[in-house]
Structures are given as C-alpha cells and as structure tokens.
Design a binder for these strands. Structure first.
Length: 276
DNA sequence: AGCCAGGGTCTGC
DNA sequence: GCAGACCATGGC
C-alpha cells in the first residue's frame, strides 16, 4: 500500500485488502453511513471522517497527515498484513472460500467503551435497529462536533443519567445494561484500557461482571474494541456456520487470527445464507 | 399474527 | 452443565 498526500486529502493506493463497504457495513461498527456510492462518513475518536473509494484509490478527505498517522492508520488497522493472514487461513478450504468472499474486511480498532456499549445494544437485536439506537444515543447524549454530527457519549455522561433519561433510545430491556456498564466503567471498577494487554480470558472475566454482558458481548468488545484479534464471538450465525461448515470445530489454522476468521465466516454465512 | 433479530439472566432440574 | 421462560422493540 502506498500513502499519498494530495491537496488536503490522504490517498491510499494499492490497497488489496481494504474494501470500504465490506469493512464499514459488516456489522462490526454501527456509525458509518454511506452518503452515496462508495462514499462513507463516520465518527471515531471524536473526529468526523469522510472516506471514499474510486478507481482503486481510497481517499480520506480533509485529513491531515497528523490525524492519519495518529488516528486513522491505527483505526483501520492498516499496518496489519491481511494477505498473509488470508494465506494462513487458506490452509482450510472452507476458510479459503470465506476469505475470498470477504477479502476486503479489516477489523476496525474502535474505542473500547463504544464497542462495549454498541454490543450490549446488539443483543437479541438486528443490525438496522442497533444502528438506530446507537444514533439516538449519540444525538441525545453525545457532543455536537459538526452540524448534525455527534460524538459517542462518554461512560461518565451515561452514568449521570437515569433509566427514564434513556427511554428516548427505545432500547428496551438493554437500557439497564447500558447504565450498569457506564457506572462500572466511569467508576473505575473496570478499566477498559487495561484489558488490552491482559490475557484474553482474564479480560473476559472482567467484562462479564457487567450486568447484561455475557460471553458473546464480551468477545465482541475484546475483538472490536480491545485489539484481541484471537477473540471469536459466537453469535447465532457463527454457531450455525461452524456447525455446518466445520462440524462444530474451528480449524487449527484459524486459532491465532480467530477474530478475523470469524468476520470472514460471518460475512460468508450471511451472503450465502449457508445454502450452498 | 407470529417469528426473528451479531444474547443474557434467572430459575429449576 | 443444560433447558426453558422471559425480557422490549420493530420489521417482515
């Protein structure tokens, strides 16, 4: 991949394993909107970004080199060699096929609190409605960064609210879980940043102390928010897929990068509805 | 109308 | 350890 500065924009050339639609709309993040064909807008780390793809070039609009190297390079996981990982996973034929379907997915390095909160909301829910609830969460309790664009609210802000305040989200039974998570995080009972460098099992044990956080939500937080690339969240799609495609056991070659394999399998399962 | 959605808790065996 | 009821809300 080549990084080119061009008139206030940052361009990424020769990006073999980075497809915006696959990465931003695969159910790992819920705040990216497609404004028009191959042009997306999102908010992360308190910054608004427009990013688009055209003629094989991915452009980050109105982005300084400083922001690119301090924020977006890491956020989009650009320093990881996905081609190498695809090759490793291809030792298994089914993973190879799934990888060919989903080759352009990258695991975003989202903020831990946003990931935790988003996946609490995701439980027993569908992706369009998750997006709606997250949007209302930001509009009601985030900070307006630009006209009509809001940051993800902090745990401290949410912790200062009541269940009645959260009713505007229409998040149903999940509101009490959001509140408990906010209290434990803002109160220092759980220090999310510290979970990054912990052994994954210890980190998971911490996360499931939150009311309404079980193994699956914990693993999504570990994978999408805390860079534990070996986490393997088991949702209904993955359970069905692993049962059908692998006889219930994930192949050995997927152990090290299970989280990336998980995304490929999830995408493949949803695209094919497991009918082939 | 009833089922399902990137689940978790609680109860009862 | 495992099954089953229940949990809010909205789209189909």
């Amino acid at each position: 991949m080549k990084i080119v500065k061009n008139a206030g924009n940052i361009e990424l050339h020769e990006t073999e394993n980075f497809v915006l639609a696959q990465t931003l709309d695969c159910g790992q993040a819920f705040r990216w909107k497609e404004l028009k064909e191959d042009l997306w807008q999102g908010v992360a780390l308190g910054k608004v970004l427009k990013i688009g793809a055209k003629d094989g070039v991915i452009t980050l609009y109105n982005t300084t080199e400083e922001d690119f190297y301090n924020i977006w390079q890491n956020y989009f996981d650009l320093e990881r060699d996905y081609r190498k990982i695809l090759n490793t996973l291809s030792a298994n034929d089914v993973l190879k096929t799934a990888g060919e379907y989903a080759y352009g997915i990258r695991i975003l390095r989202q903020e831990p609190w946003e990931a935790l909160c988003s996946f609490i909301i995701s439980q027993n829910n569908n992706i369009p409605r998750i997006k709606g609830i997250v949007e209302r969460l930001c509009e009601n309790f985030g900070v307006e960064i630009e006209e009509g664009v809001y940051s993800f609210p902090t745990a401290e802000k949410i912790a200062s609210l009541s269940l009645e305040d959260l009713a505007v989200l229409r998040s149903g039974f999940r509101a009490k879980y959001i509140l408990d998570a906010a209290k434990k995080v803002s109160g220092g009972e759980i220090v999310l940043d510290r979970l990054r460098d912990m052994p994954i099992d210890d980190a998971r044990t911490e996360l499931v102390k939150i009311y309404g956080v079980g193994e699956k939500v914990a693993d999504c937080t570990l994978l999408f928010g805390l860079s534990h690339i070996e986490a393997f969240p088991k949702d209904v799609w993955i359970k069905r897929a692993v049962a059908k495609l692998f006889d219930g056991v994930l192949p050995e070659c997927a152990t090290e990068y299970a989280g990336i394999a998980q995304q490929y399998i999830f995408h493949y399962a949803r695209m094919t509805k497991l009918e082939i």
